[in-house]
Design a protein around this nucleic acid. Structure first.
Length: 423
RNA sequence: GGAGAGGUGUCUGAGUGGUCGAAAGAGCACGCCUGGAAAGUGUGUAUACGCCAAAAGUGUAUCGAGGGUUCGAAUCCCUCCCUCUCCGCCA
């Protein structure tokens, strides 16, 4: 959520930045500015009246104590009359403020200056490509066939138990999941992230804090009986750890990592591109989150990007890094890098990580602040990234490492899997 | 799920209608004291929004949340949420 004071003082800039995100509701921004000035006008008049009433009440108390009951009664009448006005003004104020808030949450975050203009994923900027795309043997198989061939993943069983998009991992397939999770967590810990294990259900306040609510509830599974949502990413519970918190300056940066399953409804996405592990309703992911000083957030974004890339390099996967264009970016992000690995059997790039700087977009909603050098509270910047999401990593590992004799496990994973080959 | 108790500032904890944004203590910060430290001692120590060019200052709100009574509510009433204890159930 943007800060009203910023919108008020930087209308042109806000509109210009929003245009990069392909957001063109100029009217909304102007509505916000009008509502804000209405809000302040109402606040001034209601507070003036309240101030008078408070003084009067104090005076009545004084008169009562000194036994001047008549004078007190006279004052009571007058003060009582103000009460109606105060009530009216306060209600108006609340109504205007409510409307302001409702409009405010509709504005996406402003993109960073380096974000390319564009609407479709094709307009994302390729920042770098790393590693050679492997050439596969003649009869190479896509991962879903490999998974069946070696009995690693059973998609049909998952359908029986839950539905499409909920795979059952078996044998070495299951162990590979566990190995990847442990490996990613260990690497994150080495990089300075403190591990947390989290609730998988979140309440509305948490969903609001990180930007999933309002409006994006359709992407989450909802447990109506208790008004809770299944997490779409560990970002939500981890970042919300710091909701309503004022950190000491020296506590920054806060670095956390966590493994959770993630649940996404992904309504309406079916077809060849979502086959196998390409898109699931439940998947595993290790997330990294940082809460940092605003001056540091873009350096930290690079650090996080580097961390993710090092994982991909260690796994021996060819990948590329994209700087997302305005239209393809998330609602709350100011700058996002997507990491994609090359799926050799499918001959296409698969997104395996997304690393974003939210600047103060989330912290404003979360009321996540720190005490700055002047001793004042200031909104911190939040960042998060997948490090990494498992399914597409598994997909590319299976496909790219397939040989006539079986599938080779990357060296770094062997201590975790305790086996070198799937055959 | 049943019964009871309770939610006050960073913490402990006082406060049952007016002088309460809130006693006291602890903690923390800065100073004094000290060769240095401890002890002692002094001062300070919530947040948000508004007014002001800004600092200073100042107004309003906030004692779990929302509503009500009253000239005036941390204090009285109602609703909700949460925590704790005991019992029950249970991985």
């Amino acid at each position: 959520m943007l800060q009203v004071s910023y919108i008020r003082d930087n209308r042109e800039q806000v509109l210009e930045r929003l245009a990069v995100k392909n957001f063109k509701q100029v009217g909304l921004v102007d509505d916000i500015i009008v509502l804000d000035s209405q809000r302040r006008a109402l606040q001034i008049s209601s507070e003036e009246l309240q101030s008078k009433a408070n003084a009067s009440a104090k005076q009545i108390g004084e008169l009562m104590r000194t036994g001047k009951k008549d004078e007190a009664d006279a004052l009571k009448g007058q003060t009582g009359a103000w009460k109606e006005d105060i009530k009216k003004l306060t209600e108006d104020l609340a109504a205007v403020d409510e409307e302001l808030q409702q409009k405010l949450v509709l504005l996406p975050n402003l993109p960073h200056a380096s974000v390319p203009k564009g609407i479709t994923p094709e307009e994302n900027e390729v920042v770098l490509e790393h590693g050679n795309k492997p050439t596969l043997p003649e009869n190479a198989l896509p991962h879903w066939e490999l998974a069946a061939k070696y009995d690693l993943i059973d998609f049909e069983l998952g359908v029986k138990i839950t539905g499409a998009g909920f795979p059952v991992y078996k044998g070495k397939g299951a162990k590979l999941q566990r190995a990847l999770i442990a490996y990613f967590l260990d690497e994150a810990e080495k990089a300075g992230y403190a591990e947390v294990m989290l609730p998988l259900l979140i309440n509305e306040a948490s969903g609001f804090g990180t930007g999933q609510l309002p409006d994006k509830e359709g992407q989450m599974y909802y447990v109506g009986m208790d008004n809770l949502f299944l997490i779409p990413t560990a970002e939500v519970p981890i970042t919300n750890l710091y909701r309503d918190v004022i950190l000491k300056g020296e506590e920054l940066p806060v670095m956390n990592c966590g493994y959770t399953p993630c649940f996404r409804r992904e309504a309406g996405s079916y077809g060849a591109h979502v086959r196998g592990l390409n898109r699931l309703h439940q998947f595993d992911k290790v997330e990294i989150v940082q809460v940092v000083h605003p001056d540091k957030s873009y350096d930290v974004l690079e650090t996080m990007s580097t961390h993710v890339q090092s994982l991909l390099q260690n796994l021996g996967l060819a990948y590329r890094v994209l700087r997302l264009c305005g239209g393809d970016m998330g609602f709350g992000s100011a700058l996002t890098y997507d990491m994609e690995t090359w799926s050799a059997a499918q001959q296409r790039w698969l997104e395996v990580s997304s690393v974003s700087n939210f600047e103060t977009f989330q912290s404003n909603r979360l009321k996540l602040r720190f005490r700055n050098a002047e001793g004042k509270t200031q909104l911190a910047h939040t960042l998060n990234g997948s490090a990494l999401a498992l399914p597409r990593i598994v997909a590319t590992l299976l496909e790219n490492n397939q040989t006539a004799d079986g599938i080779r496990i990357p060296e770094v994973l062997v201590p975790y899997t305790k086996f070198e080959w799937i055959s």
